[in-house]
């Protein structure tokens, strides 16, 4: 087994089973620095589970996940975040009773301990960063609104914004355009193209048009294993992939 440290993320022989059912089965998956990767696959292929494993929400039964050479499987969730992994959930996960500004502020990567949070000052640096992120994620006008009042699409953006506050090196987005209008999707595609500069991004998505807009390299998951990998065209013409999507 060669463990290649030149990758940003190296997932090797990863397996997780739930009462005997293997949601991820001996998976190998590598990401380069500053790569945008789209993961597709039919329902139940293990896409979300893969993200869960990387960010520590689910513990692996076997295998390793190395991020910049550091083993993630042994780390608690918040340490994985500290290492530089950010994760957006499938359904927008924001703090409804805080304002948009406070949502972003909570995600600012300082004052992460109890005492640090007590001593934390909302100074110019923080406010500027909040403005910058809010600008790029289209929620600038809403900063003082309560986040629960945002539209579904805005909530999705806000959550992406919260992740950008942390400046993660690896950003994992689980269906970022689900429930968005066509126009919002276009905006999101643009947003993705800008945030990929300087970091790696994994996107899980079902919307093939959206995938085509952003994808450079695509990984197809099926039954917890990689079925195909490559650029969009080659994957789309792969017979096995067509079989899986159209049924047998």
């Amino acid at each position: 087994m060669t463990t290649n440290t030149n990758f940003l993320l190296a997932v090797e022989d990863l397996t997780v089973s739930f009462d005997g059912f293997k949601a991820i089965d001996g998976l190998n998956f590598y990401m380069d620095y500053k790569e945008l990767r789209v993961v597709i696959g039919p329902n139940g292929a293990g896409k979300t589970t893969l993200l869960d494993l990387i960010c520590g929400k689910t513990k692996a039964s076997a295998g390793s996940i190395k991020f910049k050479g550091q083993e993630l499987t042994a780390l608690p969730e918040h340490r994985i975040v500290w290492a530089g992994v950010g994760r957006k959930f499938q359904t927008p996960s924001i703090y409804e009773s805080l304002t948009v500004r406070e949502n972003l502020e909570v995600s600012y990567p300082e004052g992460r301990g109890v005492w640090g949070a007590l001593a934390f000052k909302r100074d110019r640096r923080v406010l500027e960063k909040i403005d910058e992120v809010a600008e790029s994620t289209f929620v600038k006008d809403m900063l003082d609104k309560e986040a629960g009042l945002l539209s579904h699409g805005q909530k999705q953006w806000l959550e992406i914004g919260m992740l950008l506050m942390q400046d993660p090196e690896l950003l994992m987005l689980d269906e970022p355009v689900a429930g968005m209008s066509v126009k919002e999707r276009e905006q999101t595609a643009e947003l993705l193209n800008t945030i990929t500069e300087g970091r790696s991004v994994i996107v899980i998505e079902h919307d093939m048009n959206f995938v085509k807009r952003i994808a450079r390299k695509v990984t197809v998951l099926h039954q917890g294993q990689i079925l195909a990998e490559g650029d969009m065209d080659s994957v789309q013409s792969d017979k096995r992939v067509i079989d899986v999507y159209l049924g047998h």
Partner: peptide, 30 residues
């Protein structure tokens, strides 16, 4: 206490514990 960032994290935790955890906080300590 409630006016500090800690206070906002407290409310955030009540709303979405997982989001706080995956924003890099050790929820248990809070």
């Amino acid at each position: 206490l409630l006016s500090t960032k800690y206070g906002r994290i407290l409310v955030a935790m009540r709303d979405r514990e997982d989001r706080v955890r995956f924003s890099g906080y050790d929820v248990a300590n809070f």
